[in-house]
């Protein structure tokens, strides 16, 4: 599936994912502790610099991801401005942009496989206590496999609808889509069990 990883490879792609996540956590804590306008401005400039460092394509792709924030920035500035505290509005806006921006940078420069490896490492201690992480790993793989398949089925149903209707597809296509999901769950459970399943200790797996 198409991930949100950057279209261009950067040097940061090679850095360990765990370190990037740790740094992001610290940076976010720092941003929320920082109350000065100058500090927030500097922090925002640093984040902006990081977006620009790998070149224009990277910066354009990255800053586009922050688009959803602009309405909130507008609300913050207008609202605080009306109350006569534009400085507070600016601090909050900059903090929002820097925090989301920094997190977006980590997402853009970390491959999905590396992220999953971090999860696996974090979950490793659980295994020592006898908790199986197998279902989690299988579950993630299943979603990666079936989310695009279901989305394709949804698009298919929408075209089947449009082929016979002048109106936009209604909620009614959600029914066959959900039925597909339920039936696929049954089939894939069979496919899992046919190859050993989650537990294979002499138990007839009747449905």
């Amino acid at each position: 599936m198409l991930a949100l990883t950057s279209p261009v490879r950067t040097r940061a792609h090679g850095w360990p994912a765990g370190a990037k996540l740790g740094a992001l956590g610290l940076a976010t804590l720092g941003l929320f502790a920082l109350e000065s306008l100058l500090g927030q401005t500097l922090a925002a400039l640093v984040v902006l610099g990081l977006f620009l460092a790998p070149g224009r394509v990277f910066a354009a792709a990255g800053l586009r991801r922050l688009r959803a924030l602009w309405p909130f920035v507008a609300v913050l500035l207008v609202w605080n401005g009306i109350e006569g505290d534009l400085r507070e509005g600016a601090i909050l806006s900059l903090r929002l942009l820097s925090a989301v921006g920094a997190a977006t940078l980590v997402t853009m420069t970390t491959r999905l496989d590396d992220m999953i490896a971090v999860i696996r490492r974090l979950a490793a201690p659980l295994r020592r206590f006898g908790v199986s992480t197998r279902p989690l790993e299988l579950g993630m793989a299943l979603v990666l496999r079936f989310a695009p398949a279901l989305a394709a089925r949804g698009t298919q149903l929408a075209s089947a609808w449009r082929a016979r209707s002048a109106r936009r597809p209604s909620w009614r296509i959600v029914v066959p889509l959900a039925i597909t999901a339920l039936d696929d769950a049954d089939h894939v459970a069979d496919a899992l069990r046919a190859r050993g399943g989650l537990i294979d200790e002499g138990r007839p797996n009747g449905t």
Binding site: L138, L142, A181, I199
Partner: peptide, 10 residues
């Protein structure tokens, strides 16, 4: 068991 997992994932 497997069906719980596949239903959740689906």
């Amino acid at each position: 068991m497997e069906r719980d997992l596949t239903l959740i994932a689906m």
